[in-house]
Design a protein around this nucleic acid. Structure first.
Lengths: 219, 219
DNA sequence: CAAGAGTCTGATCAATTGATAAAACAATCT
DNA sequence: AGATTGTTTTATCAATTGATCAGACTCTTG
């Protein structure tokens, strides 16, 4: 069982850099988020990564396994972008810090709309992939976010809205423009990858949430 | 060319009620919005409609054609739900009326999350189906919505945010909870199909947009 | 009843899908 | 150089895909 041993390897030292494997995951992130799981064929995946199709099954047990690796990678990136800050913010109820976290969330969604694209694709109906997303990634994020939003409401920093609604308002209002990037480009004169547009969107969401109190661009 | 003649028929008298055809379109709306275009096989489509698979190609030229019929149906429903009101509201700058239109938009998104699910699926990357959606349905809606939002900003009814951003904030904040219905059910204790929850969400979005001015539940 | 148009199904098509097997290639160690 | 281990490719598999065709069924009309 040579294959099995290699798949074991794949799971053992994740940290070790494997450029080919990383190129495949990068291609998977793009294609899965654009075309959905079923819409992305392993052949096109491989072509975009510049490798032969069976190589996917060498580095990953199955197409599902590759999808999970792509999801893991995206959530790891978001965690890295938000975690250090948000953890301490929740602890001491720092409103300005919380605002910065929300801004960073919006900016991340603009930089990596693939994350929300993949979430959206699987959150519409129950299924094994939604199980994986919710149990492994989304629920912990939701719980901490709800806690953060609760402190903001209690502090009067944002209007008195139940945290469940606030959560879906923010995760909807923030990323949608960037998730629908190609559509936005056709409908409007704005370029959703332009940093000025991204900042303007973060300003807009924060203005609605926090009111016209502090400076639009927080550190 | 018997088939051709029948497909012509299909395009001629749309208004005429064809129960079988309608059942197929209804199944297509559900399955396409849940599983995406590629993820919905014609066999499962037919099974959900309770017919044999080749019947789809009898009533519709192709799978693409069926998809377009499903999209048309969804947009027709939304147009019917919003049009009468929104047209006159834009005309005379009726702020309370505009608020009611936005509330109705949110309620419609809760009743028929399939519409936004289909839009989201195709708006992530350019393609023939996005062409159809944008050119035929989304652009006209966007233009009128942008106009409506412009009057609201000018009247000072909502914060001074560029209409492009307002558009994506509203179309994100409003429907996302319902588009992600199954996920929401798992993350929270709320049932996104419960009318009280829907109204609470509309209240929340309107509170953020219009402030705590008028009564939460407008007519 | 017979004829015929319209509706629907079973059988089947070529093409594509994810996955596997076997072999070629590459790199390291002796 | 020869052997071994790890990586990648070519060839191929069974299964599923969307679509087509010929025939069966249903209904109205003559």
């Amino acid at each position: 069982m040579q294959q099995t041993a290699q798949h074991a390897r794949e799971r053992v030292h994740r940290a070790s850099s494997d450029p080919t494997r990383e190129r495949i995951v990068a291609a998977a992130i793009d294609l899965f988020s654009e075309r959905s799981f079923e819409g992305a064929s392993t052949r096109e995946l491989a072509a975009r990564a510049g490798v032969a199709q069976p190589l996917l099954n060498y580095h990953f047990r199955s197409k599902d396994d590759l999808w999970r690796a792509a999801a893991d990678q995206l959530f790891a990136e978001m965690t890295q972008a938000l975690d250090t800050r948000s953890a301490e913010v929740i602890a001491d109820g720092d409103v300005a810090g919380a605002k910065a976290v929300i801004r960073e969330f919006i900016c991340f969604s603009a930089r990596r709309p693939q994350l929300h694209r993949m979430i959206t694709q699987e959150s519409k109906a129950d299924g094994p992939r939604m199980d994986y997303l919710v149990d492994r990634h989304v629920r912990p994020i939701y719980e901490r976010t709800a806690q953060l939003l609760g402190t903001l409401v209690k502090a009067g920093a944002v209007p008195a809205i139940p945290v469940e609604h606030l959560y879906y308002i923010i995760t909807g209002a923030g990323p949608t423009m960037f998730v629908h990037g190609p559509e936005c480009r056709r409908l409007t004169a704005l370029d959703p990858t332009d940093d000025a547009v991204i900042q303007a969107h973060a300003d807009a969401v924060c203005l609605l949430l926090f009111g016209p109190h502090s400076a639009p661009a927080a550190a």
